[in-house]
Amino acid sequence: MLNIKNLQVGLEEENKQILKGVDLEIGEGEVHAIMGPNGSGKSTTSYVLAGKDGYEVTEGSATLNGQELLDMEPDERAAAGLFLAFQYPVEIPGVGNMTFLRTAVNAQRKARGEEELSAGEFLKVVREKAKTLKIDADMLKRPVNVGFSGGEKKRNEILQMAMLEPKMCVLDETDSGLDVDAMKLVAEGVNALRDGKRSFLVITHYQRLLDHIKPDVVHIMANGRIVKTGGPELALEVENNGYADILAEVG
């Protein structure tokens, strides 16, 4: 599904290397987690995959089902099946959440040569999916993320994911700023989308999210590289001992 090879990335504005050769392969239906200390390059990885400005890829590739993502515009990557759930979802005053969702869904359908959803069809689907995420009609009417609580913003990200039905979902610290109940709700939303085909990359600081979204593979990222890869037990090790032991072990 997602295949990242020797990805090296710096900041455009300053001469600073952030990713120093990331290798990562995620198969169909797999759930991978990336953990790591602050500043290790986790969020940069997610932004570079989604195509945010300001980063310079100096080396390497990232392909989604064989298509090179790094050559595409952000919207093309989305149409190809990539979805990034933002750590800090952006507020867009003046654009209603419903309009935003429908525009996004139809833009992707159009890009893939599919017929656009009518207002009626769309409304039916969105209401149903919003209900399971406890997103009320009022939240759908309000401008995108404006005045939403931290939990509402993250639930809104998952709603977008559910509506867009991507192949590859990247969740950037989706647990940050959430209380236990909100995290459970978000995790349930994510788990509902696990169908054996869709793949996930879950970026997190803490093991607790992985109690709810069970990963197949856990990677530890430090200083711009994946330094260790293992099973779910690796996350427990981090939870108990912190990163210091692992980092010392890999030098």
């Binding site: 989604a50 195509g51 945010k52 400005d53 515009e73 952000p74 919207d75 990557r77 989305a78 149409a79 979805f83 990034l84 933002f86 979802p89 952006v90 507020e91 867009i92 005053p93 003046g94 654009v95 935003f100 525009t103 996004a104 869904v105 833009a107 992707q108 890009a111 401008p143 977008q160 867009l164």
Partner: peptide, 30 residues
């Protein structure tokens, strides 16, 4: 125009020009 909002819309599959128009109309909306 808010670059973060443009990227956010882009990441959801909305092409650049359409995203720019959406944000422009939203700005005039008030």
């Amino acid at each position: 125009i808010d670059e973060d909002a443009l990227f956010y819309l882009g990441s959801r599959g909305v092409p650049h020009k359409q995203a720019q128009d959406m944000l422009t109309l939203a700005f005039l909306g008030e």
